[in-house]
Simulated scan of single mutants.
Amino acid sequence: MARSLEHRSTYPQPVDTVYSTLVDEGFLTDRLRAIGGKDAALLDHTRTGDAVAFTLRQGVDAERLPSAARSVLGGDLVVERAERWRPDGSRYAAETSVSISGVPGSIRGQSRLGEHGGESLLVVRAEVRVSIPLVGGKLEKVVVEQVTKLLATEAEFTEKWLAERG
């Protein structure tokens, strides 16, 4: 059984400004340095016109994980997240896939960035699936909680970044 999540972030800057920031190599590197965790890195970044693809590696020390997750992982949590952004009419859209070391499962998501009520609105929807008998549901719940916290932290970082660069 999979679990779904949705996260919304708003920014007062125009959609094109927010998009340019979200896919900027310098921004991604700084965000990883600030909140990416253990051994965080931008593994690749490719721009083709207005479309951008990148892969991030983020890490969480084992001692910061709930016991259910520690027992399955047997060590640190290493996450690789690939995002593929493209223009989509008056907005931007992304497909995201995430792999987690030592966990048979996946996270698949879509993001939409557009204008809503005079602000830029980023909506992230994802589905978390962990294929481990008996504990898969518990791990899915933990992953959804952690991803939701990460998205909120990333939104805060983005707000500050945009405000500082006006």
Rank of each mutant, 00 (worst) to 15 (best):
44 D>R: 15
44 D>W: 07
45 H>I: 08
46 T>W: 05
46 T>A: 13
47 R>I: 01
47 R>P: 07
47 R>N: 07
48 T>W: 09
48 T>C: 06
48 T>G: 10
49 G>K: 11
50 D>K: 15
51 A>R: 09
51 A>G: 13
52 V>H: 09
53 A>N: 12
54 F>P: 02
54 F>S: 13
55 T>I: 06
56 L>I: 10
57 R>I: 02
57 R>L: 00
57 R>H: 04
57 R>D: 07
59 G>H: 03
60 V>W: 04
60 V>Y: 00
61 D>P: 00
62 A>H: 01
62 A>L: 03
64 R>G: 00
64 R>M: 11
64 R>P: 01
65 L>H: 08
67 S>P: 08
68 A>H: 00
68 A>S: 13
69 A>R: 02
70 R>G: 03
70 R>A: 00
71 S>T: 14
71 S>E: 11
72 V>C: 10
72 V>H: 03
72 V>R: 06
73 L>K: 04
73 L>W: 01
73 L>E: 04
74 G>A: 08
74 G>I: 03
75 G>C: 06
75 G>H: 06
78 V>P: 05
78 V>A: 12
78 V>G: 03
80 E>M: 00
80 E>K: 10
80 E>D: 13
81 R>V: 14
81 R>C: 08
81 R>D: 12
81 R>A: 02
82 A>F: 10
82 A>E: 15
83 E>C: 05
83 E>T: 11
83 E>P: 07
84 R>L: 02
84 R>A: 13
85 W>A: 06
85 W>Q: 04
85 W>M: 01
86 R>W: 07
86 R>L: 00
86 R>E: 13
86 R>N: 00
87 P>W: 06
88 D>R: 09
89 G>A: 06
89 G>I: 00
89 G>K: 05
89 G>R: 10
91 R>T: 12
92 Y>H: 08
92 Y>S: 01
